[in-house]
Simulated assay, not measured.
Amino acid sequence: MTITQLEYVLAVAEHQNFTKAAEHRFVTQPTLSMQIQKLEDQLDILIFDRSKKPIELTEVGKRIVAQAKNIVNESHRIQDIVDQQKGFIGGEFKLGIIPTVMPTLLPMFLKSFIKKFPKVKLKIEELTTEEIMSRLNEGHLDAAIAATPLESETIKERVLYYEPFVAYIPENHRLKSKKTIDVSDLDLEDMLLLEDGHCFRDGVINLCKAFKTQHDETFQLESGSIETLIRLSDENLGMTLLPYLHTLELNKSQKNNLHYFTEPSPAREVSLIFHKSELKMQIVNALKDNIASIIRGAIAFQNVQIISPLSK
């Protein structure tokens, strides 16, 4: 039994197809099939039911795959130990970032991180929190940046910063005359929201529901991006809430529409998250330190109240 054979088994279990698994592992399909066949012969069992389309794991195959993941991860840990001993920070690192953080945070730290750690090959994807959690648990991401806490036993969280919510209120809105607003002023019925699937949307809904009973009415308008929400609000179609970093790039006219909350300001907690068995901790630590050092100069708010990003 070899680590390579177990890696081939994991690839077929993931892709449910020998040809796709071989492409993923950069080997020929006959080579991959032969190695898995050798392993099955050695163990005297069938790992895959090849009569099914797509290919399925047998019952014993499911248990073997679960154990194979542990073995392959532990084998990778040996190289990780060597890298840490040598102080080496490099190699491929797959990072997921939620959509409401990506456009503001990434430009702030990416250039600095690449310059400081040129041997790290970052592969960055914009993903929802649900996609991030799934990929972290499946081993397809090394880490992610998301709103927390996520209350997962398998995921560790390291807080990067607390980002206050800021109200964006257009002309002719009922709250326009207020210099600062209270959470109790909010009403979902005249608020523009992100589409379902965004944790920032869930945070806004949780914020409103915590202080005020809402009617079960359909929201007037929903959008897939914060930029669109701002444009819709500029057309007097409703107010919206923005994460603080999104307010820094607004033009002078738009900044006149910003209204801050009375303290403690509602805020989201943004963290670097990773699976509890993550191997590349030297890169995780480098990312956290780099981002934290940059963000300190952008967000100075202290008296905040963290709003849960989880749908309730």
Score class of each variant (00 low, 15 high):
residue 119 K to H: 13
residue 119 K to W: 00
residue 119 K to C: 00
residue 121 K to D: 09
residue 121 K to G: 04
residue 122 L to Y: 09
residue 122 L to F: 05
residue 122 L to P: 06
residue 122 L to H: 02
residue 123 K to L: 14
residue 124 I to V: 15
residue 125 E to N: 15
residue 126 E to R: 10
residue 126 E to K: 14
residue 128 T to H: 12
residue 128 T to F: 11
residue 129 T to C: 09
residue 130 E to W: 01
residue 132 I to D: 05
residue 133 M to W: 01
residue 134 S to P: 10
residue 135 R to T: 05
residue 135 R to S: 04
residue 136 L to I: 02
residue 136 L to F: 10
residue 137 N to V: 11
residue 139 G to S: 10
residue 140 H to G: 09
residue 140 H to T: 07
residue 140 H to W: 07
residue 141 L to Y: 06
residue 141 L to R: 03
residue 142 D to Q: 00
residue 142 D to T: 08
residue 142 D to S: 06
residue 143 A to H: 00
residue 144 A to I: 01
residue 144 A to H: 01
residue 145 I to E: 10
residue 146 A to V: 04
residue 147 A to W: 09
residue 148 T to M: 02
residue 148 T to F: 08
residue 148 T to Q: 00
residue 149 P to G: 12
residue 149 P to Y: 07
residue 151 E to T: 09
residue 153 E to C: 08
residue 153 E to H: 15
residue 154 T to L: 13
residue 154 T to R: 11
residue 155 I to H: 05
residue 155 I to P: 00
residue 155 I to L: 05
residue 155 I to M: 06
residue 155 I to Q: 02
residue 156 K to H: 12
residue 157 E to P: 00
residue 159 V to S: 09
residue 161 Y to V: 08
residue 162 Y to N: 12
residue 162 Y to C: 08
residue 162 Y to W: 11
residue 162 Y to V: 13
residue 168 Y to Q: 00
residue 168 Y to G: 06
residue 168 Y to T: 04
residue 169 I to A: 03
residue 169 I to P: 11
residue 169 I to N: 03
residue 172 N to G: 04
residue 173 H to D: 07
residue 173 H to K: 02
residue 174 R to P: 00
residue 174 R to S: 07
residue 175 L to F: 06
residue 177 S to I: 05
residue 179 K to F: 09
residue 183 V to Y: 07
residue 183 V to S: 05
